[in-house]
Design a protein around this nucleic acid. Sequence first.
DNA 1: CTCTATTGTTTTGACATCTAACCTTTATGG
DNA 2: CCATAAAGGTTAGATGTCAAAACAATAGAG
Lengths: 191, 191
Amino acid sequence: MARHDEVLIALRRIIRATDMYSRRLSKIAGLTAPQLLVMQAIARQGEMTMGDIADEVSLSQATITTILDRLEKRELIQRLRGSTDKRRVYAHLTESGTELLARAPTPLQEEFISRFASLSDWEQSLILSSLQRVAAMMNADDIDASPVLDLGAMDRAQPATDINEQRQRQTGAQPPAKTPAKHTFSEATRK
Amino acid sequence: MARHDEVLIALRRIIRATDMYSRRLSKIAGLTAPQLLVMQAIARQGEMTMGDIADEVSLSQATITTILDRLEKRELIQRLRGSTDKRRVYAHLTESGTELLARAPTPLQEEFISRFASLSDWEQSLILSSLQRVAAMMNADDIDASPVLDLGAMDRAQPATDINEQRQRQTGAQPPAKTPAKHTFSEATRK
DNA sequence: CTCTATTGTTTTGACATCTAACCTTTATGG
DNA sequence: CCATAAAGGTTAGATGTCAAAACAATAGAG
């Protein structure tokens, strides 16, 4: 078995564990992992537009919409249409949302966190940088995305012309603690 | 920002990249990543039951069912009820399934593979073992579920050496997945 | 001051996933 | 033998997720 096959297996296990924890979270805390992440982001900023949230948590806008739909239905967040720019929609936590969030656990398994914390410092940074490298290697081809790409593509899918479009949202992954900040939100000072 | 928060971010990026590649695969090759994995597994074994596949690719049986539903609808695989044991259902590739599979790319981004391959040997194994360790740390609490809630136990006495032991047979990978049962208790409560 | 391009969201349609509940069949204990 | 448990699959119901298309509102060009 090739090394990269083992990588794939490990990745799928990680992905699955993440998913299963999300479901467990949902049972014990009433929030799935993405819901929790989104709410934490909103709590940090006070109020955010859909696009801001999407950038912050690295999900598409469409996904944010559906997540907020569910949160809104449960009255954990509220949407407010922007007054100056009516295209924007601002989300903020409700009373009960804030409360629920306060009682919620972390979006990463406690078990994992404590195990990870018990590793020595150099082991932790080794693991972290490995993950970041993998992430970078996987996201990289997003950036250049060979403009031509395989012949086999055209005899099957007609579209296939859209590779350049998404170059707006890739964050380097190198700088440790750095909010992407591609979006300055200074809307309130509009005329 | 805490180390484990950075871990979380890296993980989410990896998960997202994996998902996006799956969609791209689906466009250029007509198969998503899980579909491809399932078909490759079947191709290797010739013929497999739902449960075998589930174990092999680390997904639940229900998921395999829905994936095979789609593949069967497109006539890429076929289901055959077992003759001796009629509970079993065997899946095998059809003519066109074999053909499509032959033309399909790898389930991991080529770009990633070549980047990974270009790393030195020790780097590769460093990354691989980091991933395997993360996977092991995340899946670990699956095993016990709730014996005690230690915390005080480990932060003092143990030099944290036995945490690594959990991953004994990961690298061997002969018997893949092996979800530790834990599922067999809630069955016959219907009545 | 219109007409059009751009920007921000939502909707649509398709997959992937899981748990829990439900069927079928086989295995087992009296 | 037969009732019941166990094993293998499928169905139902929820989420998450994305690309693309559809909408809505603002910004720009003439």
